[in-house]
Design a protein around this nucleic acid. Structure first.
Lengths: 239, 239
DNA sequence: TATATTTTTGCAGGCTCTGCATATTTGCGT
DNA sequence: ACGCAAATATGCAGAGCCTGCAAAAATATA
């Protein structure tokens, strides 16, 4: 099922010493970047400082990221794959939107507790809206891979799904993108948007409602066709 | 009703020579940037080249944009305001989602013909996915202003709407953002996402359907609560 | 151990972006 | 028309971002 595109298409789950060290270095760079940004403000953190904190040379930094800002934003890199896996694993009779909702909820629930790095990350994004914009754009690629997975889940039978990293921005990536239906694409994009809105809204009003409640409300709105709510959202009679 | 925040909060519709020249310069820079990018590829266009083509100094470029990429992305700057105006002008009995759909459709219809610059712009975004990501993030601010307008339209009665440029990334902007309800925020974000998906899908399959058809299909999906379509979207029996 | 492949690193150099001082332009009252 | 005040444009210096290239170090393989 997997397609080898060229020499650079190595096994992403490489188990050898090489792959392990690469993952460690990437994680170390992200952690250093986020921690330094949380302390000094993102715009005051240089590539040299991040590299030194991670124990590599400044030149190596750019072997891992295309720009400095990317290091501040690549915190949820592994989440994308787990969400796609959960979408595929959902029972067959669950409608697509619900499958997506549950997959996202499960991932967000885990992520919320597991890594304390996420708190710092959201802190950094709040203090640097410039990075929030960057973060949204950075996940466009994830969004399209999710669309492929949803297409497979629905049974649109995309034979193009491979599970490997999408060569975003390449001619071949464009070809695969073309073959995708409109509905899965929309579902993936709206799902990502829903998560973003829920997170933003909750970050700003943490004391008014739990994240789960906000998240569920958002997807209720979507399932209701975005009709105007007659009662203010999250009414008291929910209990 | 308007709130003066500080010295920099000038009248955006300034009619004098100053305001006119500023708008002209900004438009000249955007046009030069897009044209050069369409010809040589965005990554091969320097700030010096853009500035020279627009007839200003390189230093002046950065008085108008925070980064070089911003000039490639600021093509639809005036659209945002017209959409908000159209949302407010919709008849009172039109549901929010439909009002938003019609406002966006009207603007997209005008934009599609008026400026030939848009063709070049989409060309540039296709050839530089890096800029597509940037573009999405760049319109987060527009999205929030739209949310404010939708809140006013719905009658949630946001007394915070002022119509002026939102001071994005400032403490005061955060405060205004907090006071906004979840539903208008979601509606604005999903609307922007819908436009993006429709444009992306249509750009890639221009020969299969008109943009209006794709756009209408997307909003039909939204109104239907994103349920799985039983028939492939845009079925033949539509005619 | 010897060889091939991959990754890291240093270095040179161009480009991006900012702060500051200065010159130019515009708004406005006289 | 003239002059003052405010806004804008410009030049310059300097820090930082990012890339290509070639050599060195680390890793895989035989």
């Amino acid at each position: 099922m997997r397609i080898l595109h060229d020499v650079h298409d190595r096994d992403p789950a490489e188990g050898g010493l090489r792959g392990r060290k690469k993952r460690e270095t990437r994680a170390a760079l992200v952690a250093a970047a986020v921690r330094l940004a949380a302390e000094h403000g993102a715009e005051n953190v240089t590539v040299d400082a991040i590299s030194e904190a991670a124990g590599v040379s400044p030149r190596t930094f750019f072997n891992y990221f295309d720009s400095r800002d990317e290091a501040f934003v690549m915190v949820g890199a592994e989440s994308s794959g787990r969400v796609r896996q959960a979408v595929l694993a959902a029972p067959a009779d669950v409608p697509p939107l619900a499958a997506l909702r549950d997959a996202l909820a499960a991932e967000l629930g885990e992520v919320e507790q597991r890594h304390e790095l996420w708190r710092l990350h959201s802190e950094v994004l709040r203090r640097s809206p410039h990075l929030l914009a960057r973060s949204i754009g950075a996940h466009v690629e994830d969004e399209f891979m999710l669309a492929e997975t949803l297409a497979e889940r629905i049974g649109a039978g995309s034979p193009l799904f491979t599970g490997d990293r999408l060569p975003f921005g390449t001619a071949e990536g464009e070809l695969r993108r073309q073959a995708l239906g409109l509905y899965p694409r929309l579902l993936a994009a709206v799902g990502a948007t829903a998560v973003r809105v829920a997170v933003e809204h909750w970050c700003v009003r943490q004391d008014e409602a739990t994240f789960e409640a906000v998240f569920r409300t958002v997807f209720d709105h979507l399932a209701a066709g975005l009709t105007e709510p007659v009662v203010p959202v999250v009414p008291a009679d929910e209990a």
